[in-house]
Simulated assay, not measured.
Amino acid sequence: MAQATIGDSEFDRDTAVTPREDEDGVYDAHLSAGWTIIHAVNGGYLLALLGRTLGQALPHADPFSVTAHYLTPSAPGPAVVRTQRVRTGRTLSTGQASLFQYDENGAEIERIRVLASYGDLDALPDDVRTTAKPPAIPPIEHCLGPSDAPAPIPGSSAITERLMLKLDPTTLGWAVGAPSGKGEMRGWFGLADGRDPDPYSLLLAVDALPPTAFEMGLTGWTPTVELTAHIRCRPAPGPLRVSITTRNLAGGFLEEDAEVWDSADRLVAQSRQLARALRTP
């Protein structure tokens, strides 16, 4: 199968929106069932869809900082995105977007609300001063994907068929009933059709790995409450490396800090999210 290209991929089609001719800043969307976890639509996919929408609505196309509050679970099907320009400057534009779906009576229910700043990643200076280092992950051929699991993985679903996801075996104790107790998840990430990464797919990458709660011994769903992603530069072609850590689970909530590195060993995205840790009965 030929490798998909940016703009001609299932990911691009499933995050596309259509502007309404009669309503400025309003877009129609369809949430694909292909990006679900169990029955809910993946939060990273939603972030990417809203990120692409704001890239169309604002004069700058590249997301720099995106903060999302997940209000109610999204379901596959039609949706509407309402956007608003907050501020427009020479180097940064700020806007907000909300995604709505409909209840059985046709009333709109807000699913997710985003506030974001956009700019031009190609205009950033080359100067980098950092102490950050790429995560130590074994080569892809020594990592494991959903098809390598000895039994069905909790939470696996349609989204796994659309991802190239190979996880570090040292973060997979949960898959064989022996979680390490550490809040760590690491792996190689890409789209299954071979499409190279771009700023929008980075918004997916920060929330596409299994939750760190699995390796802490929890097997329930961990719905995101709030997520902030920073896109640091345009990623180079090739697979990404994603590292996610949790240091504190307390009061039924945990944080997840993610780093995304590209094939040129550059830190291309960072995120922090607050999630609920729901225990199974």
Rank of each mutant, 00 (worst) to 15 (best):
G183E: 02
K182R: 13
D8P: 05
R82I: 00
S201F: 03
E141H: 15
P152C: 09
P73L: 06
S98I: 02
D196V: 05
G220L: 04
A229M: 04
P154V: 04
A68R: 08
S156M: 09
P199W: 01
A175W: 02
G194W: 10
S65K: 14
E23H: 14
D127I: 08
V242Q: 08
H60P: 11
T53V: 10
R195F: 03
R129Q: 11
Y102A: 13
Q56A: 13
P135H: 12
R272F: 01
P235H: 09
H30P: 10
Q96H: 14
D196Y: 07
A275K: 13
A57H: 09
D24W: 11
S147L: 13
D262K: 08
S117L: 01
A275D: 06
P169K: 13
D126G: 11
H39P: 01
L58I: 04
G238I: 01
L254C: 11
T160I: 09
L121R: 06
G173S: 05
A40V: 14
A192T: 07
P152M: 10
L204R: 10
T280Q: 15
E110H: 08
R266I: 02
N248F: 13
Q96S: 15
M164E: 12
S156L: 02
E10G: 14
A236T: 10
M1A: 15
I137M: 09
Q96T: 14
E110D: 11
P19T: 07
L49E: 08
G187M: 02
T67F: 01
D168N: 15
L267K: 02
P139T: 05
P281G: 13
D122G: 13
G252N: 06
N105V: 11
T131M: 15
A264I: 03
D103T: 07
G55L: 03
S156N: 09
L121S: 03
R111Q: 14
L163N: 11
L121G: 02
R195G: 03
T5V: 14
S74L: 11
L58N: 07
E255Y: 08
I37Y: 07
G44L: 00
D14V: 07
D126K: 09
G173K: 07
I153C: 08
Y45D: 10
A75H: 15
I38V: 13
A40Q: 14
T212F: 06
T224L: 00
T131E: 15
E215W: 04
A205Q: 02
D265R: 03
R85K: 13
G238S: 08
W35T: 03
G89S: 11
H60D: 08
D62I: 03
K182N: 08
A75M: 15
V268D: 00
R186P: 02
R279F: 04
T222C: 15
T245M: 14
T88L: 06
G251T: 00
P223F: 00
L218A: 12
R272W: 00
A158N: 14
V128L: 08
A68C: 11
D262V: 01
P59F: 02
G44I: 01
Q56L: 14
G95L: 01
